[in-house]
Design a protein around this nucleic acid. Sequence first.
DNA 1: AACACCTGTCAAAGTTTTCTGACACGTCTC
DNA 2: GAGACGTGTCAGAAAACTTTGACAGGTGTT
Lengths: 117, 117
Amino acid sequence: MAEVPQPAPTGDELLRVLSALGNPHRMRIVAALLESRTYVSALAREIGMSRPLLHMHLQRLEAAGLVVGTLELAEDGKAMKYYEVAPFFYELTPGVIARAAETITTTADRTTKEEAK
Amino acid sequence: MAEVPQPAPTGDELLRVLSALGNPHRMRIVAALLESRTYVSALAREIGMSRPLLHMHLQRLEAAGLVVGTLELAEDGKAMKYYEVAPFFYELTPGVIARAAETITTTADRTTKEEAK
DNA sequence: AACACCTGTCAAAGTTTTCTGACACGTCTC
DNA sequence: GAGACGTGTCAGAAAACTTTGACAGGTGTT
């Protein structure tokens, strides 16, 4: 197994990842998806969570690049969204945090950019 | 430099760490403290943040074990609280998250335990 | 005594995140 | 057509987090 040097994550990326993982529900979701990929409704039943809520959490995890969703057509024609965990890897050290901190765009900037597009 | 195997963090510990670092201000605070240890008031001026607010953020970081504060008496008798970053190291992978997820105590449990002591 | 620092805490306000209960749309089966 | 699945979205309530300003205490200097 080759050791691959990790590129330093940007502040915004790391921020998305950390705040996505810093939530008990979302940790459990990652754990469940690592066990086996499933579709939203099944996962909602499995972990006992309302579907709209799970939808939101999955959104957050996907935005952080930690899971990926794929809309698949089942043989019976039903459209089902399958999710699986992405193979992420982050190292958390003071240095990494400090380097990331330099590239954090302010909330104001982020909002402005979003609105601009 | 010896490679030390990292013990798997508990769910609650990882949760505290991730939610502590998943905040732009707190990232910047870690970055500033890595540059040089300082005391609260000086740091507040340096990063342009109100002292009570900084106090709260430092609390959160310290609770997660990411920084350590020491109350020191200056020669002139003034009591000053110096903070510095702790040498932390966490690896974030799907497996680590999944293992941590198993040991998450529910919010209800945590609250009960806190009150019980 | 008044000022300039340092420390801490607290209540209230503001903002974001989380969560629920509808609703709308689609397919297939009875 | 009604029912059982699947998808997504939206508004509003509830809870958590962030932020401010004011207060109280400490020391040492003018």
